[in-house]
Amino acid sequence: MIDGVSRPTLLLVHGAWHGGWCWEKLASVLHADGWRTRAVDLPSAGGRAGVQDDAQVVLGELERIEGPVVVVAHSYGGIPVSQAVAQAGNVSQIVYLAAYQLDVGESLLGFHGAPVSPGPRDVEAVPDDPVGLFYGDVPRSEAEQAAARLVPQSTQSFRDALTRAGWHTIPSTYIVCEDDRALPVQSQQTLAARSGAVHRIKSSHSPFLSMPGELAALLSEIALASEPGTRRTS
């Protein structure tokens, strides 16, 4: 029987330019349904850290959680999560939410066919029109409040290639956001082909803000179906 004690903890990992704050609305819904959640703040957001630094933060948080964990990675967050979970022993499932499910040797810039050699910038400024890019279906006032909290993102985090990819041995699920303007659906579908299961949600890039109830229900379904300790062989 799965109850409030034996349920896995959900570790929520944000994407570029964001912070752990972006999960607050979703976490509130999940808590009301009896789920335990944790969120991290990746040092690449607002700093100059790379993927390995972000992965160490994720791994450190995993080591502090007792029992099985379902890791939910959004957008860029999928990259350090893939790196970190390969070294963790308590992850029962990875959920890639419109996220970069990259393989060993791949980087975010490389996936998009962009040059990965060092350039003149240390950080990537917050994109123009973040409301339209990230929060197209979020109420305008709430979207503007979220956009005001965005910070520059480390360019290094976009250049760094994975040296490990935990999804080769840990079950993974991909959630495609069908109205996403930040990570095109075609790119998501290419990445989702690497997951063991695929779900679709009709949302912008940020369903944790636009439809937290629907996303929470889907995450609950995925997490309840996960079997702690089950690992695939690559």
Rank of each mutant, 00 (worst) to 15 (best):
H199M: 09
D179Y: 04
S172R: 06
T163A: 11
G166Y: 01
T173A: 08
G166M: 05
A165N: 08
A161E: 10
A193V: 13
V198I: 13
V185W: 05
K202C: 06
R200L: 08
V198D: 03
S187Y: 07
A197G: 10
A182Y: 00
P171G: 12
L162I: 11
G166E: 01
W167F: 12
S187H: 15
H168T: 14
I175T: 04
G166Q: 03
R159W: 12
Y174T: 14
P184F: 05
Y174L: 10
A193Y: 10
C177S: 13
P171D: 09
F158E: 07
W167I: 05
W167D: 01
S172G: 14
S195W: 02
T169F: 04
R159M: 11
S157M: 10
G166W: 00
G196V: 08
L183K: 00
A161L: 10
D180Y: 00
W167Y: 14
L162D: 00
T173V: 14
E178F: 07
D180S: 01
D180N: 07
I201S: 00
L191F: 04
Q188D: 12
E178W: 05
V185Y: 02
T169Y: 04
V176G: 02
F158G: 02
D180H: 00
A192Y: 00
T190F: 11
P184Q: 06
I175Q: 00
I170M: 09
P184C: 06
G196I: 07
K202D: 13
A192T: 08
A193G: 15
A192S: 12
D179Q: 15
A193S: 14
H199E: 10
L183S: 07
A182I: 05
P184W: 03
A165R: 01
D179K: 08
L183A: 09
A193M: 15
W167R: 08
T190H: 13
G196C: 05
S195K: 08
P171N: 13
I201E: 02
A161G: 15
S157A: 15
I170S: 03
E178S: 14
T163Y: 08
Q188R: 03
A161V: 11
L191A: 06
V185C: 02
P184H: 07
C177E: 06
C177K: 00
G166H: 01
I175W: 01
Q188E: 08
P171F: 10
W167V: 05
D160E: 07
V176W: 00
